[in-house]
Design a protein around this nucleic acid. Structure first.
Lengths: 237, 237
DNA sequence: CGAGAAGCGAGAGCGGCGCTCTCGTCTGGA
DNA sequence: TCCAGACGAGAGCGCCGCTCTCGCTTCTCG
């Protein structure tokens, strides 16, 4: 993103921002499926075809939003961690507290931005396939979790972990390969639990947002916190 | 569903079936968002407005499909259990094996019917809210999991479970209330783990279907089976 | 500084969608 | 046998994503 020099470039950058702003409001209001280029252009007082000068297709606009949302979520998770970063994560209690904090931060963000969350982790939009540009911010979300585990591993918290049997499944290979991207110190068996744990967090939020808890576990605050706490224990031993 | 007597009734029942069949193909092919009443009518050689004699809106057709899919998934889960039903679930090993079997059956069904699965557990369709008719078959899916746990509880497998502290959160109350619908024998703390476990299974399948594992854990067979196995252990103690 | 290139918005138009309403026809029960 | 109700056809409403052409403006480069 070079600084806009000419008036044309400045106008273009501004309009691009405006389009994304309106798109954000549309998604926050009625979901990604309600995102309409015609609606945006109407709100911006321009003709629908003009939008295509800025985003060649609806999916490109969606991709831009996707990147924004991943980044926003990742920021929220890292910010939540920082509130207790002063406390070292060298102890078991510290690790657990930090893990639960990040899990809760994810749920809070999801409840505050349900449509954004479902766009990230819900049903992929029909013909849409997320381009590689989105994987970088998406990984920042993942590392918000794995970072905690990595730090705890460096502190030597996972000594009594039963080693994974390295069968012909290639699981250990997958895990060590993935682990080298996230932090060398995470033992494969611990990384497996971390991924499963993240899946559980996303699953519970998805179920809650999808209304699968109504009439049973609504509000799900207590259930969620309980599950996150147990998750931390599970990861650890 | 009374048996059709007149020719009119027979024709109506048949056409209703045909519409659902075509709708199923459309969803299986391009997802729920690609479901189009016009497309169905075209394939059926009739004019689009005629469809509305049978389903008053697109959402009503979606509801009918939803009920079918929940039932289909529940059937698959129960069928998978039945293959090892001869073996009693009185032992710890039996319980774990049965749990993993049902988890795997769910993943298998989801991989074979990705669009159906995402319709059930993915992003809710925009303005659509599932009517109560869908909760009955949806609960059959839940009970496919909780039934195993209930049986294990009856066999006295969960004796050494640390009791949940009954704080002011009301979690124990929620769990006992929900438990009374699923099987009186499940201790609240075990039910909490069961729900969290189901959330993890759904979460991992969602991530896999959403392509969040590509480049890291694809294929996810080994990771999934490992997670399901650990889940069974976690539920038990 | 002036001409050509490139960027831009407006407008018309394509085919698609869900859904509504009207109209003639057919069917089945009283 | 007759008539109410169910039915399919067709036209139409407003929405959508996307394309193409046409003039106007802005920038760049000789």
């Amino acid at each position: 993103m070079a600084a806009p020099r000419t008036a044309r470039e400045r106008a273009r950058a501004e309009l691009t921002r405006d389009i994304k702003d309106v798109a954000l409001r549309q998604i926050a209001g009625s979901g990604a499926a309600g995102l309409s280029l015609r609606g945006i252009s109407r709100e911006l007082g321009m003709v629908s075809s003009a939008i295509y000068r800025y985003f060649p297709s609806r999916d490109d606009l969606l991709t831009a939003m996707l990147i924004d949302f991943y980044s926003e979520l990742a920021d929220a998770l890292w910010a939540a961690q920082d509130t207790i970063a002063a406390e070292a994560t060298r102890t078991s209690a510290g690790f657990r507290r930090r893990w639960v904090t990040v899990c809760t931060a994810m749920r809070d963000w999801a409840l505050a931005h349900p449509h954004q969350f479902t766009l990230l982790y819900g049903t992929p939009v029909p013909g849409y396939r997320a381009p590689v540009d989105t994987t970088v911010p998406a990984e920042r979300v993942m590392t918000a979790f794995s970072g905690i585990v990595d730090e705890a591993a460096r502190a030597g918290l996972f000594t009594s972990v039963r080693a994974l049997p390295d069968g012909e499944s290639g699981l250990v290979g997958q895990l060590t390969a993935a682990g080298s991207l996230l932090g060398e110190q995470i033992p494969p068996e611990v990384l497996a639990r971390t991924v499963a744990g993240l899946a559980q967090v996303i699953g519970m939020i998805t179920l809650e947002l999808g209304g699968h808890f109504v009439g049973g576990f609504e509000p799900a605050d207590a259930l969620f916190e309980h599950a996150a706490t147990r998750l931390a224990e599970t990861i650890e031993r």
